[in-house]
Amino acid sequence: MVADKTIIEVDNLTFRYDLRKKKQILSAISFSVKQGEWIAVVGDNGSGKSTLARLLVGLLEPENGTITIDGIQLNEETKWDIRKKIGLVFQNPENQFIGTTVQDDVAFGLENNNTPYNEMKQIVEEALQLVEMDMYWDQDPSRLSGGQKQRVAIAGILAFKPNVIILDEAFVMLDPKSRNQLLSTLKQLREKRNITIISVTHDMNEAAIADRILVMDDGTIIQDSTPEAVFKTNQQLAAPFPEQLRRKLAESGSNVPQTYMTEDEMVRWLCK
Protein backbone atom coordinates (compact mmCIF):
# COMPACT_ATOMS: atom_id res chain seq x y z
CA MET A 1 0.00 0.00 0.00
CA VAL A 2 2.82 2.39 -0.67
CA ALA A 3 1.16 5.66 -1.56
CA ASP A 4 2.68 8.30 -3.75
CA LYS A 5 2.85 10.78 -0.93
CA THR A 6 6.35 11.57 0.27
CA ILE A 7 6.37 11.51 4.07
CA ILE A 8 10.06 12.09 4.81
CA GLU A 9 12.44 14.21 2.81
CA VAL A 10 16.04 14.39 3.96
CA ASP A 11 18.23 16.82 2.08
CA ASN A 12 21.97 17.25 2.35
CA LEU A 13 22.02 16.29 6.04
CA THR A 14 25.36 16.78 7.77
CA PHE A 15 26.21 16.20 11.41
CA ARG A 16 29.25 16.35 13.69
CA TYR A 17 29.24 15.61 17.41
CA ASP A 18 32.09 17.95 17.97
CA LEU A 19 32.14 21.02 15.78
CA ARG A 20 35.84 21.60 16.46
CA LYS A 21 36.72 18.28 14.90
CA LYS A 22 36.69 17.55 11.25
CA LYS A 23 35.18 14.09 11.49
CA GLN A 24 31.65 14.10 10.20
CA ILE A 25 29.32 11.47 11.59
CA LEU A 26 26.99 12.11 8.68
CA SER A 27 28.11 13.83 5.52
CA ALA A 28 25.54 15.33 3.17
CA ILE A 29 22.96 12.57 3.23
CA SER A 30 19.83 12.81 1.07
CA PHE A 31 16.95 10.40 0.67
CA SER A 32 13.17 10.36 0.75
CA VAL A 33 10.57 7.95 2.04
CA LYS A 34 7.00 7.41 0.86
CA GLN A 35 4.03 6.93 3.15
CA GLY A 36 3.63 3.23 4.01
CA GLU A 37 7.14 2.18 3.01
CA TRP A 38 9.28 -0.14 5.12
CA ILE A 39 12.91 0.96 5.12
CA ALA A 40 15.79 -0.93 6.71
CA VAL A 41 18.92 1.03 7.56
CA VAL A 42 21.98 -1.20 7.85
CA GLY A 43 25.69 -0.66 8.30
CA ASP A 44 28.56 -1.27 10.71
CA ASN A 45 28.78 0.24 14.15
CA GLY A 46 29.89 3.81 13.74
CA SER A 47 28.45 4.14 10.24
CA GLY A 48 26.07 6.83 11.51
CA LYS A 49 22.80 4.93 11.33
CA SER A 50 21.76 5.55 14.93
CA THR A 51 22.73 9.20 14.62
CA LEU A 52 20.39 9.41 11.64
CA ALA A 53 17.54 7.98 13.70
CA ARG A 54 18.11 10.56 16.44
CA LEU A 55 18.30 13.42 13.96
CA LEU A 56 14.97 12.40 12.44
CA VAL A 57 13.13 12.93 15.74
CA GLY A 58 15.01 16.09 16.64
CA LEU A 59 17.06 14.65 19.51
CA LEU A 60 20.12 16.01 17.71
CA GLU A 61 20.46 19.16 15.69
CA PRO A 62 22.00 18.92 12.21
CA GLU A 63 24.96 21.07 11.30
CA ASN A 64 23.62 21.45 7.82
CA GLY A 65 20.75 20.31 5.64
CA THR A 66 17.05 19.83 6.25
CA ILE A 67 14.61 17.18 7.37
CA THR A 68 11.00 17.58 6.25
CA ILE A 69 8.33 15.37 7.72
CA ASP A 70 4.79 15.37 6.31
CA GLY A 71 5.44 18.76 4.76
CA ILE A 72 6.80 20.42 7.90
CA GLN A 73 10.47 21.27 8.21
CA LEU A 74 12.01 20.03 11.45
CA ASN A 75 13.42 22.76 13.70
CA GLU A 76 13.36 23.93 17.34
CA GLU A 77 9.82 25.31 17.04
CA THR A 78 8.25 22.49 15.08
CA LYS A 79 9.92 19.55 16.79
CA TRP A 80 7.21 19.10 19.42
CA ASP A 81 4.52 18.87 16.75
CA ILE A 82 6.62 16.67 14.51
CA ARG A 83 7.13 14.19 17.34
CA LYS A 84 3.42 13.45 17.16
CA LYS A 85 3.91 12.32 13.59
CA ILE A 86 7.09 10.33 14.11
CA GLY A 87 7.95 8.12 17.06
CA LEU A 88 11.20 6.42 18.05
CA VAL A 89 11.54 2.99 19.66
CA PHE A 90 14.89 2.71 21.44
CA GLN A 91 17.18 -0.25 21.84
CA ASN A 92 16.81 -0.98 25.54
CA PRO A 93 13.24 -2.04 26.39
CA GLU A 94 13.82 -1.53 30.10
CA ASN A 95 14.90 2.11 29.99
CA GLN A 96 12.04 3.32 27.85
CA PHE A 97 9.31 2.06 30.12
CA ILE A 98 8.47 5.13 32.14
CA GLY A 99 5.05 4.35 33.56
CA THR A 100 4.48 2.10 36.54
CA THR A 101 2.06 -0.10 34.64
CA VAL A 102 1.43 -0.81 30.96
CA GLN A 103 -1.47 1.63 30.65
CA ASP A 104 0.38 4.38 32.54
CA ASP A 105 3.28 4.03 30.18
CA VAL A 106 1.11 4.36 27.09
CA ALA A 107 -0.57 7.39 28.64
CA PHE A 108 2.72 9.19 29.39
CA GLY A 109 2.89 10.96 26.04
CA LEU A 110 -0.78 11.88 26.20
CA GLU A 111 -0.33 13.37 29.64
CA ASN A 112 2.49 15.47 28.27
CA ASN A 113 0.11 16.64 25.57
CA ASN A 114 -2.44 17.60 28.25
CA THR A 115 -5.08 15.27 26.79
CA PRO A 116 -8.24 15.13 28.93
CA TYR A 117 -8.73 12.03 31.07
CA ASN A 118 -11.70 10.45 29.29
CA GLU A 119 -10.10 10.82 25.89
CA MET A 120 -6.86 9.30 27.20
CA LYS A 121 -8.66 6.30 28.61
CA GLN A 122 -10.10 5.49 25.19
CA ILE A 123 -6.91 6.13 23.21
CA VAL A 124 -4.82 3.99 25.56
CA GLU A 125 -7.23 1.11 25.20
CA GLU A 126 -7.23 1.28 21.41
CA ALA A 127 -3.45 1.60 21.19
CA LEU A 128 -2.95 -1.43 23.41
CA GLN A 129 -5.36 -3.45 21.30
CA LEU A 130 -3.41 -2.59 18.18
CA VAL A 131 -0.23 -4.13 19.58
CA GLU A 132 -2.16 -6.95 21.25
CA MET A 133 -1.13 -5.97 24.74
CA ASP A 134 -4.60 -5.04 26.02
CA MET A 135 -4.83 -8.04 28.33
CA TYR A 136 -1.71 -6.82 30.14
CA TRP A 137 -3.03 -3.30 30.78
CA ASP A 138 -2.47 -3.42 34.54
CA GLN A 139 0.87 -5.29 34.62
CA ASP A 140 4.03 -3.74 35.90
CA PRO A 141 7.12 -3.91 33.65
CA SER A 142 8.92 -6.51 35.76
CA ARG A 143 6.40 -9.11 34.58
CA LEU A 144 6.80 -8.38 30.87
CA SER A 145 9.28 -9.81 28.40
CA GLY A 146 11.55 -7.50 26.44
CA GLY A 147 9.39 -7.89 23.34
CA GLN A 148 6.23 -7.03 25.24
CA LYS A 149 7.88 -3.89 26.58
CA GLN A 150 8.84 -2.88 23.06
CA ARG A 151 5.23 -3.38 21.97
CA VAL A 152 4.06 -1.17 24.83
CA ALA A 153 6.53 1.46 23.66
CA ILE A 154 4.99 1.22 20.20
CA ALA A 155 1.51 1.61 21.69
CA GLY A 156 2.75 4.80 23.36
CA ILE A 157 3.71 6.09 19.93
CA LEU A 158 0.48 4.89 18.29
CA ALA A 159 -1.51 6.96 20.77
CA PHE A 160 -0.66 9.96 18.59
CA LYS A 161 -1.75 8.34 15.34
CA PRO A 162 1.70 8.83 13.84
CA ASN A 163 2.77 8.51 10.20
CA VAL A 164 6.19 7.06 10.94
CA ILE A 165 7.73 4.72 13.48
CA ILE A 166 11.51 4.53 13.69
CA LEU A 167 13.14 1.58 15.42
CA ASP A 168 16.70 2.10 16.58
CA GLU A 169 18.04 -1.45 16.90
CA ALA A 170 14.88 -2.24 18.83
CA PHE A 171 15.30 -5.96 18.17
CA VAL A 172 18.83 -6.39 19.45
CA MET A 173 18.04 -7.12 23.09
CA LEU A 174 15.18 -9.51 22.34
CA ASP A 175 15.09 -13.29 22.23
CA PRO A 176 14.03 -14.92 18.93
CA LYS A 177 10.43 -15.41 20.02
CA SER A 178 9.96 -11.79 21.09
CA ARG A 179 11.65 -10.72 17.89
CA ASN A 180 9.14 -12.57 15.76
CA GLN A 181 6.20 -11.21 17.72
CA LEU A 182 7.45 -7.66 17.40
CA LEU A 183 8.01 -8.16 13.71
CA SER A 184 4.48 -9.43 13.14
CA THR A 185 3.07 -6.51 15.15
CA LEU A 186 4.90 -4.12 12.86
CA LYS A 187 3.66 -5.88 9.74
CA GLN A 188 0.08 -5.66 10.97
CA LEU A 189 0.41 -1.99 11.81
CA ARG A 190 1.59 -1.26 8.34
CA GLU A 191 -1.34 -3.11 6.87
CA LYS A 192 -3.99 -1.66 9.16
CA ARG A 193 -2.73 1.89 9.57
CA ASN A 194 -0.42 2.32 6.61
CA ILE A 195 2.36 3.34 8.96
CA THR A 196 5.80 4.01 7.53
CA ILE A 197 8.52 1.99 9.24
CA ILE A 198 12.19 2.84 9.38
CA SER A 199 14.19 0.14 11.10
CA VAL A 200 17.83 0.58 12.00
CA THR A 201 19.06 -2.98 12.27
CA HIS A 202 21.86 -5.53 12.16
CA ASP A 203 19.56 -8.42 11.40
CA MET A 204 19.65 -9.22 7.69
CA ASN A 205 16.64 -11.54 7.86
CA GLU A 206 14.71 -8.53 9.12
CA ALA A 207 16.23 -6.22 6.51
CA ALA A 208 15.29 -8.70 3.79
CA ILE A 209 11.56 -8.11 4.33
CA ALA A 210 11.89 -4.33 3.89
CA ASP A 211 10.84 -2.57 0.69
CA ARG A 212 14.15 -0.78 0.55
CA ILE A 213 17.49 -1.01 2.27
CA LEU A 214 19.72 1.96 2.97
CA VAL A 215 23.29 0.75 3.40
CA MET A 216 25.41 3.20 5.37
CA ASP A 217 29.14 3.36 5.60
CA ASP A 218 31.26 5.97 7.30
CA GLY A 219 28.55 8.63 7.38
CA THR A 220 27.25 8.25 3.86
CA ILE A 221 24.56 6.20 2.17
CA ILE A 222 26.43 3.89 -0.19
CA GLN A 223 23.37 2.06 -1.43
CA ASP A 224 19.65 2.74 -1.53
CA SER A 225 17.68 0.01 -3.27
CA THR A 226 15.61 -3.17 -2.93
CA PRO A 227 16.89 -6.10 -0.83
CA GLU A 228 17.32 -8.01 -4.06
CA ALA A 229 19.68 -5.44 -5.55
CA VAL A 230 21.53 -4.84 -2.30
CA PHE A 231 22.27 -8.48 -1.57
CA LYS A 232 23.19 -9.14 -5.18
CA THR A 233 25.81 -6.43 -5.43
CA ASN A 234 27.01 -6.12 -1.85
CA GLN A 235 28.96 -9.22 -0.87
CA GLN A 236 30.30 -7.74 2.38
CA LEU A 237 26.85 -7.65 3.94
CA ALA A 238 25.92 -10.82 5.82
CA ALA A 239 23.12 -12.10 3.60
CA PRO A 240 19.86 -13.69 4.79
CA PHE A 241 19.96 -17.47 5.10
CA PRO A 242 18.43 -18.50 1.72
CA GLU A 243 20.82 -16.17 -0.08
CA GLN A 244 23.77 -17.58 1.85
CA LEU A 245 22.62 -21.02 0.81
CA ARG A 246 22.42 -19.91 -2.82
CA ARG A 247 25.97 -18.56 -2.71
CA LYS A 248 27.32 -21.72 -1.08
CA LEU A 249 25.53 -23.90 -3.61
CA ALA A 250 27.00 -21.84 -6.44
CA GLU A 251 30.48 -22.29 -4.94
CA SER A 252 29.94 -26.03 -4.81
CA GLY A 253 29.32 -26.09 -8.52
CA SER A 254 25.53 -26.20 -8.50
CA ASN A 255 23.74 -24.42 -11.34
CA VAL A 256 21.62 -22.21 -9.06
CA PRO A 257 20.39 -18.94 -10.60
CA GLN A 258 22.90 -16.12 -10.34
CA THR A 259 20.41 -13.65 -8.83
CA TYR A 260 19.29 -12.99 -5.27
CA MET A 261 16.70 -15.46 -3.97
CA THR A 262 14.16 -15.26 -1.20
CA GLU A 263 13.26 -18.37 0.75
CA ASP A 264 10.15 -19.01 -1.35
CA GLU A 265 12.10 -18.66 -4.57
CA MET A 266 14.78 -20.99 -3.28
CA VAL A 267 12.27 -23.65 -2.25
CA ARG A 268 10.49 -23.38 -5.58
CA TRP A 269 13.75 -23.73 -7.47
CA LEU A 270 14.82 -26.74 -5.41
CA CYS A 271 11.42 -28.41 -5.85
CA LYS A 272 11.25 -28.09 -9.61
Binding site: F241, Q244, L245, K248, L249, S252, S254, L270
Partner: peptide, 10 residues
Protein backbone atom coordinates in the same frame (compact mmCIF):
# COMPACT_ATOMS: atom_id res chain seq x y z
CA UNK B 1 24.34 -26.05 9.50
CA UNK B 2 24.37 -24.49 6.07
CA UNK B 3 27.27 -26.72 5.02
CA UNK B 4 25.34 -29.86 6.02
CA UNK B 5 22.44 -28.66 3.93
CA UNK B 6 24.55 -27.83 0.87
CA UNK B 7 26.20 -31.26 1.02
CA UNK B 8 22.89 -33.07 1.42
CA UNK B 9 21.19 -31.15 -1.38
CA UNK B 10 23.98 -31.94 -3.78
Amino acid sequence: TIDDLVAALI
